[in-house]
Simulated assay, not measured.
Amino acid sequence: MKTRRIVATAFVAATAVAAVACGSRQASADPADGIVACPVGTRAEQPVVLVHGWQPLSAFGVEGANRSMGELESALRADGRCVYTPDYDSNAGPEKITQQFTDAVHKILQVNRANSVDLVGHSYGALIMRAVSIRFPDGANPVDNVVAVSGPQTAPGRLSGLDPAAKSFIESLNSGPSPVAASVRYTMIATHDDQISVPPDIAFLDAPNVHNVWLQDGCSRDHSGHITELKDPRLIGLVTNVLDPESHATIPCET
């Protein structure tokens, strides 16, 4: 854990309004709204921000969010992690959303007096989390890990028409000396059976501190797709292994 440190436009039909793990709240277009301190007994020193993919605000309500990211959130909370699942309006445009989540991270750190945070995103949320991680200055970056699942990191993906700004946004992120922040550890996860973020390897990046992982590495019989992977024990195992390798040394291979 760092000591001085204060995620394609792929449509995910099952993603929706999320609730902050410290208590549910009404849907908001601003991810920073309603953020309060982590519950007593959770690891407030390093919260996790868990972000769903593309979905217009409030399409399914809180239950919709539980159907999409709920199992991963439950696994993280079972580890004692403090998990924030802010909602956002994916129609707002990637620049605005990135700034909103950057502000939300600042607020999460402030209310918890924390120095670091882990970011986990799926699909469009994976792109946004990567973008947030490079908004902080070198030497003062609070982000320890970014786990980006099936995100459009090098191309907009098949359904780019949902967000006309995505292509130029991705090109801008990738136009510098490095597409990632030097002090952050990145794990980019993709599935060969993705039919939304295509080709699936657009979820990967080339940088020294990036670990690109296929869901099928070591488990060829896993055929989870873009949406079903969120409930896949292997995907959940990969994420928890990155964030807490000592407690999750073994990654399951189930069908």
Rank of each mutant, 00 (worst) to 15 (best):
R4S: 11
V7K: 14
A10V: 12
V12D: 11
A13T: 10
T15I: 14
T15S: 15
A19I: 10
V20Q: 14
V20W: 12
C22R: 15
Q26P: 09
C38P: 02
C38R: 01
P39F: 06
V40N: 07
R43V: 05
A44Y: 08
E45A: 10
P47G: 03
L50S: 03
G53I: 00
G53E: 01
P56W: 10
S58C: 07
A59F: 11
F60N: 08
V62Q: 10
G64E: 01
R67N: 13
S68D: 12
G70C: 04
E71S: 09
E71R: 12
S74R: 15
L76C: 00
D79P: 00
D79N: 01
T85Q: 15
D87F: 03
N91G: 09
G93I: 12
Q100N: 09
T102R: 07
D103Y: 05
D103K: 06
D103F: 05
I108S: 00
I108P: 02
N112T: 05
A114T: 12
N115S: 08
L119D: 02
G121S: 08
S123Q: 01
A126F: 02
I128W: 06
I128G: 04
M129Y: 06
V132A: 03
S133G: 03
P137N: 08
D138Q: 12
N145W: 15
N145M: 13
V146S: 04
A148Y: 03
S150F: 01
G151E: 04
T154H: 01
G157V: 01
R158H: 07
L159Q: 11
S160C: 06
L162D: 06
A165T: 04
A165V: 02
K167P: 03
S168Q: 14
S168T: 14
S168K: 11
F169D: 02
L173Y: 02
L173H: 01
L173Q: 06
N174R: 00
P177E: 14
S178G: 02
P179L: 03
A181M: 05
A181D: 14
A182M: 04
S183L: 02
R185M: 08
T187D: 07
T191I: 06
D193V: 07
P199T: 03
P199S: 03
D201E: 13
A207H: 04
N209K: 02
V210H: 04
H211V: 14
H211M: 12
H211G: 09
V213Q: 15
V213Y: 13
G218K: 13
R221F: 15
H223I: 13
T228V: 07
D232C: 04
P233A: 12
P233G: 08
P233M: 14
I236M: 10
L238S: 07
N241H: 15
V242H: 15
E246D: 14
S247F: 01
S247L: 05
H248W: 01
T255Q: 14
